[in-house]
Amino acid sequence: MVFTVVSPDRGMEPSSTRPLARRPPSREHGAMSSTSPAISVHDLHKRYGGFTAVDGVSFEIAHGETFALLGPNGAGKSTTVEILEGYRDRSGGEVTVLGVDPRRATLEWKARLGIVLQQTGESGNVTVREQLAHFASLYPQPRDVAEVIAAVGLEEKAGTRIKALSGGQRRRVDVALGIIGRPEVLFLDEPTTGFDPEARRQFWELIRSLSREGTTIVLTTHYLDEAAQLSDRAAVIAGGRLIDMGAVNELGPADARIPIVRWRSATGRHEERTEEPAALVSRLTAEFGELAELEVIRPSLEDVYLGLVEAAEAREEAAA
């Protein structure tokens, strides 16, 4: 079981040729050119009755870019992606995917997309190979079935009916079906749910190889390490709003990654952010001796992300 791809590891380094805009670029209507983005979302709204699921989200994704959508459950990630895929209608705003409004989807347009949905539960009375061969026949320029089966590491299960596969293996069939049509834009909605850590790493390699070929990839995920590993940029969505966007290792307010020193003294608990925590600790120790409950915290990506989401939720409550 291998996602074998022979290539150097791009790792976490963002490509220097791609824009790393911290905010949605300003949009000028009618200024479409040959360098138009693969995906453009402007002031997207989606309401269900009185509930607003997506509330004014804007972003652009360049051709060949890997873009992650992060956010808690119910934040509006999947709704946004399903509007891009043409599965849902929007209540307001403008959307184009490969220059086409998903509301006016054509078969020719669908042939250029690959979609890995969040959950599937088909009866699975076909083998992996039969299913991929059938779906390959639907596309004008499909990938080779055996190669795709190998790329998702299911060679040994190629003749097995899908219903007899484990959850993680079925998920890999989903991914294989998403890429069999050689898509220009690949949507991955929480693709690695149910993968073991090894399978996840192999999946990352596959996604990197697709990205190197120039596939534009839109990834929604709960796993911040996955977003950090794969994406050029990420957007954080909470409460239907886009609360931050940028390279994954630059998300959050400017001071979000400055280490925190915490300790307790006779006067109570103290907390100080500093780029030089060791210097602060030695100064404090020189002054007060041994410090009670001393902690030096270097905020992880997860801390930064949780801080962003909590701040957004607090703002939401204050506004309500």
């Binding site: 791809v5 250029r112 004008p140 320029q141 190669e147 190889s209 697709l210 070929e213």
Partner: peptide, 18 residues
């Protein structure tokens, strides 16, 4: 398989006709 195999046809080649 290798990345070269996956890349045998470039992603983004538009369909030849309707």
């Amino acid at each position: 398989m290798t990345a070269r195999d996956l890349a045998a046809l470039p992603a983004g080649a538009p369909p030849a006709r309707r």
